[in-house]
Amino acid sequence: MTLKGKVWTVGDHVNTDEIIAARYLNTTDGKELAAHCLEGLRPELVKQVSQGDFLVAGENFGCGSSREHAPLAIKEAGFSVVIACSFARIFLRNAINIGLPVIEIPSAREIKEGDLLEIDFQKGKIRNLTRKVEYTWSGYPPFLQELIESGGLMKWVTRKYIGSD
């Protein structure tokens, strides 16, 4: 799978309250959540994003609450991948569980807003077409790769535990 898109950037320690504030958590509707995605940090961003764009962050992206509404809002807002120097652990597992691709590379900070990227998941290559730089990414550990290839946690569990029911 190869994805191409434009980059929007945020900084370090972006927390789940900034991604989707608790006052909007009285719904589980992805589209509604998406309307307030990153409102606490960049209120205009959600109106500027085009389907398939990439969100690029610094360290510890998604720290704070366990709300799955956070990756859900990002996904529904149109972002196809989140790239960060590092992710907070609950955000990471939530993203993987709901099928929002996340890529952890230490050099994420070198990617700037407006850059055009091409991501080749098979080869683990991220090409910055604007800056003519290429980054490699070692991919997911085998267990997570299996989860992702199954189509997410629910499909994996369904096959394993309900399939024979």
């Binding site: 366990s66 709300r67 597992r93 939530n94 569980n97 946690l153 629910m154 394993k160 535990y161």
Partner: peptide, 16 residues
């Protein structure tokens, strides 16, 4: 963990 983890664990009794 997240909500999907809870959904999966309610079915399987397990968590990754």
């Amino acid at each position: 963990v997240g909500s999907t983890d809870v959904a999966a664990a309610m079915i399987s009794g397990r968590v990754w």
